[in-house]
Simulated assay, not measured.
Amino acid sequence: MAMIHLVETDITTMRVDAIVNAANETLLGGGGVDGAIHRAAGPELLAECRAIGGCTTGQAVLTKGYNLPARFVLHAVGPVWRGGNQNEPALLASCYRRCLELAIQHDIQSMAFPAISCGAYGFPLDEAADIAVDTIQSFLNRTGKPKDVYIVCFQSRVKFAFAQAIRGLEE
């Protein structure tokens, strides 16, 4: 049975088949989780991302994991929050769904998501957590894959928001 797990740790230390990077459209690294993943993976990741040539908001692409414990990195480009009237919720859900679709295509059994768009992109945390959890759980209910999906929170307030979203599904 496919399951969602909630953990508070550094996503670059996760021993899973794939970790998800909250990337920007250039895929060339940045701040927050994006910069941490690029630093931990090494310069080969940047070279592969350069060759891909970018990714549009709401989509995701797969690269190797290089020096990370994960075999792959799924680079998901989340929306910048502009008040909620620019299709941000649908684009955020699309990021999560696209990563899950890529996981099935590449036989990924375990994967770890960060809180996409909740840092510098300013997406309201509670709303983003609800969208993420609902999208992931709906996908797992429909496909039964991947087996283990981790939501990795770098801060306790983020973990709390995602725990509330998971509880909301159970009610």
Rank of each mutant, 00 (worst) to 15 (best):
T135M: 08
D34A: 11
G168S: 15
L74Q: 03
C55E: 02
I11D: 03
I37E: 00
N21R: 09
D107S: 15
G78H: 07
A40M: 12
G168K: 15
P124V: 07
D130A: 15
I19Q: 01
G35A: 10
V73D: 01
N21K: 07
L125A: 03
T135W: 13
A70C: 15
G53S: 10
Y121R: 11
R167T: 14
A103G: 11
L28G: 06
G122R: 12
E8K: 05
K64A: 15
T135P: 12
H5M: 11
A128I: 03
I136H: 02
G32C: 08
A115K: 05
V158P: 00
L28E: 09
E170F: 10
V33T: 08
Q86H: 14
A70Q: 14
R39S: 13
K145P: 04
A120R: 13
D130C: 08
C49D: 00
R50L: 11
Y96I: 00
E88D: 06
G53N: 09
A90T: 13
R15G: 12
C49P: 01
P79D: 02
C118H: 04
A90K: 07
G58D: 02
P79Q: 05
E127I: 03
S117A: 09
K159L: 06
E44M: 14
V16W: 05
G65H: 05
A76E: 04
S156A: 12
H106L: 05
V158D: 05
E88V: 06
I108Q: 10
A41W: 08
V61F: 09
I166N: 01
A93D: 13
H75G: 12
E44S: 15
